[in-house]
Nucleic acid binder design. Structure first.
Lengths: 143, 143
DNA sequence: ATAAAATCGGAGTATTTTATCCAAATAATT
DNA sequence: AATTATTTGGATAAAATACTCCGATTTTAT
């Protein structure tokens, strides 16, 4: 079960973190990413292709081709990947599914949930890929 | 799009809050709930039936039958509904979808996300249906 | 008794999400 | 030039989630 992001988004986050953990500019094939992260090959290809369209990754075709980041890891935030794949709607919609949940017509948990949601957004906006490099490397070791 | 709960769970939470906002012991039909909350009738029936199996609601058949809470609103927490429908897995699994995300092999956001997740759990465990009654009533007014 | 209004249970359908397959294009290597 | 390893794009398949249908049963009210 997914926690808050779609599987697509989880995979995208994992893959992009993985790319950021490589030496800058290293090109990694979808097969490698797929094997290391245990993500279906064709699926992660598609995800990285869509992230390329969003300007987050870059791809090179042909033998020894693959994927790498389109920008320095310090310029990519986790929220960018989330936005590109799942969108930002979750940070703007009611946790209980009520329509028009706003300060004027708040749901019963509007305030308490709102605070949490804002913290989550904040967190994802602060974390850049380079800040997470060391932690990503140790996680990869353990896989 | 759902925020963190399935549609089933969102609907369940809404319906149970609605029941808690009625005078104690009032029996409400699935049709009424469906109309007020704009939830497909057959769908909310099934959801309330499964919540009955979990001991949260009670149902009475026949004419003037319907659903009510199985216990006092003060004894039902939001987390109980979540647990009954979606389960508690989301409070115990990695937000990035990594396997074995634990203090020993943490994902890159293990600590920051963990804190948020615990707060969310806490919140859902503190909020009982009766505490939310007034807020629920105003929300229902606005629908 | 009969009719009306409700839940119940089980099966079925629709939609969305996740995943796979394959042929074509591209580029490096031999 | 041929081979190999890769991405690309489009179609398709499988699985999960969301939702519906309907006949049977139960209860109340006339």
């Amino acid at each position: 079960m997914t926690v808050i992001f779609s599987k697509k988004c989880e995979y995208g986050l994992q893959a992009v973190l993985f790319l950021a953990a490589q030496k800058t500019g290293t090109v990694v094939s979808a097969v490698t990413i797929s094997e290391v992260l245990k993500i279906p090959r064709e699926f992660i290809s598609k995800i990285l292709q869509s992230l390329r369209d969003s300007g987050i990754t870059r791809s090179t075709k042909g033998k020894s081709g693959g994927f790498c980041l389109a920008k320095p890891a310090s310029e990519i935030k986790l929220i960018d990947i989330v936005e590109a794949i799942d969108g930002l709607e979750i940070f703007n919609s009611c946790v209980l599914g009520f329509p028009e949940c706003s300060p004027v017509t708040p749901c019963p948990v509007h305030d308490s949930w709102g605070a949490l949601r804002d913290q989550a957004f904040e967190m994802l906006s602060n974390e850049t890929l380079d800040k997470l490099k060391d932690k990503t490397l140790s996680k990869i070791q353990s896989l």
